[in-house]
């Protein structure tokens, strides 16, 4: 609360990039965000921008009725925009052109194209965009994890049958092969414990284990076991940040929670 009371009101604009860090789903963890939103809407904090994770936003709408709908979100990354995003050397991590083909069929996934002029979307790209719900961050992780340097033997055979030499593409172009691999799946015996942890992590956009233990109806030992099991399944990770739902497991976790009737985000 002291943080909010010491809010500098000097007329300068401000940005609060992670509203989800301002609350905990706990009986004593909601007052701060209520006060913050109330003060921001009333104009007592001056002019500013608040950014919020979509899951936290879905929850906060139940916590405090947001009176004005001045809420904006980034445009979804559909297949075309996603192709441009992934082809961009900066995002692709390469210094020159990239040609990505399906590792099994040899078909173009990301054809050689001009980023400025737009890139035609392949069926693979449409499937990727749909699977990642047009979320560029998840799509990027998904994309990188499924790239490989060598094709399947079947794809090489296709090139040979078509009489296409292996060096048919420009010299300054790298060819990568893309294959949709096995994604994490929710186990059939998933119970309440795992659902609670996944939902808690999504609502808070990741939490350290100590805080998560205070929010879950689980003992610390139980929580640790659940987290380790979810990590082995590839559904959560704790590499750099606190525990969070792994990007590759996001689709499975979201579908599972939606199927169980949990609150999910609107995206």
């Amino acid at each position: 609360m002291a943080w909010l009371d010491a809010w500098p009101v000097n007329g300068a604009g401000w940005v609060l990039p992670e509203l989800e860090r301002c609350f905990l789903r706990h009986a004593r963890g909601l007052d701060l965000v209520r006060r913050l939103l109330e003060a921001a809407v009333a104009g007592r904090l001056g002019r500013g921008i608040i950014a919020c994770d979509s899951w936290a936003w879905a929850f906060l709408q139940r916590v405090w009725a947001i009176p004005q709908p001045e809420v904006y979100t980034l445009q979804a990354f559909d297949a075309n925009r996603l192709a441009v995003h992934l082809l961009n050397p900066a995002s692709a991590g390469a210094g020159h052109g990239l040609w990505v083909r399906n590792a099994r069929t040899g078909e173009d996934v990301l054809p050689l194209g001009d980023v400025e002029g737009g890139v035609p979307a392949s069926d693979e790209m449409r499937r990727l965009a749909a699977h990642c719900r047009d979320n560029p961050g998840i799509a990027w992780r998904y994309w990188r994890s499924h790239l490989r340097p060598e094709p399947d033997p079947s794809a090489a055979d296709i090139d040979a049958e078509n009489g296409q030499p292996a060096d048919a593409w420009p010299a300054d172009t790298d060819t990568m092969w893309w294959s949709s691999g096995r994604d994490p799946v929710m186990p059939a015996d998933t119970g309440d414990d795992m659902a609670f942890v996944l939902h808690g992590l999504l609502l808070h956009n990741g939490l350290p284990e100590e805080l998560l233990a205070r929010l879950m109806p689980l003992s610390r030992d139980q929580l640790g076991a659940v987290l380790q099991r979810l990590a082995r399944l590839g559904l959560v990770e704790c590499d750099v940040r606190p525990w969070q739902v792994a990007p590759l497991g996001y689709a499975a976790a979201r579908d599972f929670l939606r199927g169980r009737g949990y609150l999910v985000d609107a995206f």
């Binding site: 789903r25 706990h26 009986a27 004593r28 963890g29 909601l30 007052d31 929850f59 139940r62 916590v63 609670f196 939902h199 808690g200 929010l215 879950m216 109806p217 009737g261 949990y262 609150l263």
Partner: peptide
């Protein structure tokens, strides 16, 4: 107010239903 938040913070809660 507290009971409201206690209910709201329960992971067993069906959040799609009104409080």
């Amino acid at each position: 107010h507290l009971l409201h938040d206690v209910a709201l913070s329960s992971p067993y809660l069906q959040l799609d239903m009104p409080v």
